[in-house]
Structure formats: C-alpha cells, structure tokens
Design a protein around this nucleic acid. Structure first.
Length: 205
DNA sequence: TGCCAGGCCCTCTTTAGGGCCTT
C-alpha cells in the first residue's frame, strides 16, 4: 500500500485551493521500502499563514515543476496500490481534484489512519498525526507539515495500528481490505466486526 | 490578502450543535 500526504494552499479544492507538495511512500511488510516527493507549482499564491505552517514559500513553488507533471509521476509511482492518508477525507479530495485536472481518475480506495486510530487507540489524548506518533512511541520526523515527513509518520502510524490489530486478534497480517472494512464501524462493534470478517475470509479460503 | 470545507464523533442527541482533523 501507499501512504500519501499533500501540502496545499488551503482546505478546499472546490474553492480553488491547489496542491503545493506531495509525498508518497510505499509500505511492504510493515516497513517503508520506497519514496516519492516533489514540490509542484500550484499556479496561485500561497497564503502567508500556510507558509508559516509549512515553510513552503511562493518562491519555492514558482521554481517547482508544473502540478500536471508531478501528478503524472506520482500517479505512476502509486499505480493501482491501495492508498492510506491521515484524515483521508482531506487528501482524497486533493488527490481526486489534481488527478482529474490531468484527465486521470482514482480506481483504488483510501484508508484513513485517523479513523483506524480512533478505534484501535481509544485512549489517545488526540488524533493529530504528531500526537499519535508520540503516543505510540514511534520515530518523529524532523520537519512536520512537510509532505515527506508527514507521509513517513503516517506510514509508521498505520504499520503500528496493523501490529496492534495483529496482536489483539492473533493475526499473521492485517490487509488494507480489513482496515477499509473497519474504519467506519462503531467502536463498540470493532471486536465483533473483525472476528466476523476474519471468519468470512477463512470460510472463503 | 484573507476568506472559503466537510466528514466524523460525542453528547447536555437523534426534529442538533459543536469540536476535531487536514492545509
């Protein structure tokens, strides 16, 4: 699976916001095995408070490759692998919007590491990416709010959540399909839901 | 330049409201 993270000019592509940076990390067997990262030219200005948050300036993206070129490259890097993002409702909007601009569309589903964390780590003090990484004792990336650092932290988090589920339910692996199936189930039904899904998979095998 | 969203989830709820999370 591939974990992605966007930096953008704002919160909503429907209101004209564009991506300024994307990172994608490939995860296999619980570890990061490959990375893609690039700034991109959004063809609009970045608000100052976004620059304060991310460190990405108008001068940086002015020199960056066009969004169309970057999105074509990252879409090829991702291929048909299933996707993960932290608060995926945000990244999926920009992924779909930027892909549509180059005449491509997403085929695969997203899993949201925030929704999974809410179910697997109900005792966490908050579900911000950095807080969850600290709470789980995972390595903290050097520069938060840059795409590659955040994608790597989200990748470490989803691997941790998979390990937690493997341990809790004595599983050899936790697939993207299983994560997708449980991410919107009520917390109170998590145990019963996972056991039912595992039984169904065993019966089908 | 600064504004813009929207789905999830809890509760003093369900004929609703508001905080969280992403940039």
């Amino acid at each position: 699976m591939i974990v992605i993270d966007f930096e953008t000019t704002g919160l909503s592509p429907a209101y004209g916001d564009r991506a300024t940076e994307i990172a994608a990390v490939r995860v296999e067997d619980g570890r990061i095995v490959d990375r893609y990262q690039s700034l991109m030219n959004p063809q609009r200005s970045i608000p100052s408070f976004i620059t304060q948050l991310t460190g990405i300036t108008n001068a940086m993206v002015r020199k960056a490759p066009p969004a169309a070129q970057v999105m074509a490259e990252v879409a090829d890097f991702v291929g048909d692998q299933p996707l993960v993002a932290h608060n995926a409702s945000f990244d999926s909007k920009f992924w779909d919007s930027e892909l549509n601009r180059i005449g491509r569309c997403r085929q695969q589903p997203f899993v949201c590491s925030m929704l999974i964390a809410r179910r697997v780590l109900p005792q966490a003090p908050s579900y911000k990416l950095g807080v969850l990484v600290d709470f789980a004792g995972l390595p903290r990336a050097a520069r938060a709010h840059r795409a590659l650092a955040d994608a790597e932290m989200a990748a470490e988090l989803i691997c941790h959540l998979q390990r937690e589920l493997m341990q809790r339910f004595q599983l050899a692996q936790v697939s993207h399909d299983l994560l997708q199936a449980i991410q919107r189930r009520p917390k109170s039904q998590l145990d019963a839901c996972v056991r039912r899904l595992i039984a169904a998979q065993c019966a089908a095998a």
